[in-house]
């Protein structure tokens, strides 16, 4: 595998993201999601007052959320809408190129299959981590503006943990996109996996501590400052990184077995 060729492929991914405006609209949507959370939290009492048919003189008692709670809410927004958007945006990562035949034109050149897969993965990762940072930072700024300061360390730690969970799911998108012909099939398989793991973690948190999905819980704890590195924390990080590596290797092996579909 040559680093120069890998970079050529990655640069092509970036150029594609730029020309299809993915590089612009996805971070913008994340920024919007990030801003909306503190904003709706802040104006919730007003909104309820204006919208609801409250009896004359009724006083709404709503506890003011802490800054950390607002940020945790933002993360959970990202975890749903953000993840959905990213999965849909990248669902055709490999299958699109393979179905059109564009992949065969690249794979007859002296390029390793792993480089091809890695370039797709790195292209996803730069956009994912970038958009997440922009959105989360916007949320952090608005939380400071409307509520209170949240320290940098918990903010950063929760960002990294949530990013790792996203990385895991997007790697699954990549794997399914190599396995399946259908782009929609790839997106829904990966989102289904995310849903399943999250649900299992909710039902039996004790037994699912090792699962990548428990990273989201750790991220909420991290931002709220009540974080202590338990044994399962190490496990879930280790397992997630291992599964990500396996996903990349698996995609590469699948591609090697059948480079072209057209």
């Amino acid at each position: 595998m040559s680093a120069v060729k890998l970079m050529t492929l990655v640069r092509k991914e970036w150029l594609e993201q730029l020309r299809s405006f993915k590089l612009i609209w996805i971070p913008l949507v994340f920024a919007l999601l990030g801003i909306m959370q503190p904003l709706t939290n802040y104006y919730m009492p007003v909104i309820i007052e204006k919208a609801g048919n409250m009896p004359e003189g009724a006083v709404i008692e709503m506890p003011v959320p802490s800054g950390a709670e607002v940020l945790a809410g933002t993360l959970s927004q990202f975890g749903m809408i953000g993840l959905l958007i990213l999965a849909l945006a990248f669902m055709g990562a490999v299958s699109g190129d393979r179905n059109s035949g564009a992949a065969s034109l690249v794979l007859v050149k002296p390029v390793s299959f792993l480089s091809f897969i890695l370039s797709k993965w790195l292209g996803m990762m730069t956009l994912l981590w970038g958009a997440l940072l922009i959105g989360y930072a916007a949320s952090w700024y608005y939380t400071w503006l409307l509520f209170e300061t949240v320290d940098f360390a918990p903010f950063l730690l929760s960002y990294v943990l949530y990013g790792l969970w996203f990385t895991f799911i997007l790697t699954a998108v990549l794997l399914f996109s190599t396995l399946l012909r259908s782009a929609a099939g790839a997106a829904f398989s990966a989102l289904g996996l995310a849903l399943l793991l999250t649900a299992l973690s909710g039902i039996a948190p004790k037994y699912m501590g090792w699962s990548p999905s428990s990273l989201t819980g750790f991220a909420y704890e991290a931002v709220q400052g009540g974080f202590d590195a338990s044994a399962s924390f190490g496990w879930s990080i280790g397992v997630t990184i291992l599964l990500i590596a396996a996903g990349i290797a698996g995609s590469s092996a699948l591609l090697r077995r059948q480079p072209a579909l057209d």
Partner: peptide
């Protein structure tokens, strides 16, 4: 506060 939302 709302301007950035509208601009985006």
């Amino acid at each position: 506060i709302l301007a950035p939302v509208l601009i985006i």
